[in-house]
Amino acid sequence: MSTATPDTRIRVRRDASRARAELVVGKLAPRLISRGPDRVHVGVTAAEMILLDGDQVHLEVEVGPACTLHMEDIGGMVAYPRRRPEEPGPPAEWHVSLRLAAGARLVWEGLPFVVAQSADVLRRTEVQLGEGARALVRETLVWGRARETGGRLRSTTHAYDEGGDLLYENLAADAAAPEPGVLGEHRVMDSLIALGFEPKTQAGDLVLAAPGAVARHLGAETHTSPLSARLDEWRERLTASPG
């Protein structure tokens, strides 16, 4: 469980008539797009210029029992170059905590997260699933803006339920000091992460021991990724009734 203090919160609950959303603006600004009896659609954008070196962004998301939250990024995210690359200071930090109660559903359609040249970023994503909960997260990591080499990223994804770990990934990549077998010539890593349900998989996908899978594409440009089409397919599977 993360000990980071959240500055931005999204909480979805259901009362007798319809779903309710509590949106707390911090460094990120969640905005209500629509809601219905048991579902909420929220857009997320930056509330200020982030991520600069030393910035700390903490997003906490809670989805109540039998509720569905659809999140989508608006505008993507850029980790900017360090002010003084020759004098390294603390990295920019991006912490996300996703907590799903029993029977909850979450779809997060993330836009590219760009690590600019000389940027240094520590990124952590934690997903906690209650009984029967399902989550689908798209994560697109990009090293460098146009005509840039890109910076340093350490990224951890940890998903678990009451039975234990579902997924634990730890990636460290520095575009200024590439290592064989990490990303090679690729500057884009696009991922679909399905937890709590079984999507339609293809050769090369990582099928988890518990219901879930990870589809991944490595490439030179974001627009060449085939995962946009598969996102729709996996989302339909997430919303389908069990069985």
Rank of each mutant, 00 (worst) to 15 (best):
R152I: 02
I74V: 15
P112L: 09
R123F: 01
L171K: 13
T239F: 15
A116W: 06
E139P: 11
D165S: 14
Q56C: 14
L141E: 03
T5E: 14
P112A: 11
P30G: 07
L59H: 00
G212W: 07
L166T: 07
H95Q: 03
G89R: 03
R187Y: 07
E162P: 08
D232K: 08
R134M: 03
W234M: 05
S118P: 01
V121L: 04
G243K: 02
A229D: 15
P85W: 05
L28P: 12
R154T: 09
A172T: 13
A177L: 08
L111P: 04
D15M: 08
G54N: 01
L195Q: 04
A194G: 01
E233R: 13
L51S: 09
D161P: 12
V137D: 03
V182C: 01
L195V: 02
V127L: 07
G243A: 09
L141S: 03
R11N: 09
T125V: 05
A102F: 06
M77N: 04
V214Y: 05
P65W: 00
L208F: 06
R14Q: 07
E72N: 12
A172C: 10
G163T: 06
V42M: 08
N170K: 12
L106R: 03
A66L: 11
G76P: 11
P6S: 00
R84L: 11
E162H: 10
T156D: 13
S34M: 05
M77W: 08
R216S: 05
P199K: 00
V121D: 05
D174C: 08
R230W: 11
E60Y: 05
W108T: 03
T5Q: 14
V142R: 07
L106P: 02
R13W: 08
C67M: 06
P91F: 08
A46N: 05
D73T: 06
A29K: 15
E126V: 04
A92P: 00
D55H: 10
E148D: 08
A176M: 09
V78Y: 05
G164R: 04
R124E: 13
L51V: 09
V40W: 04
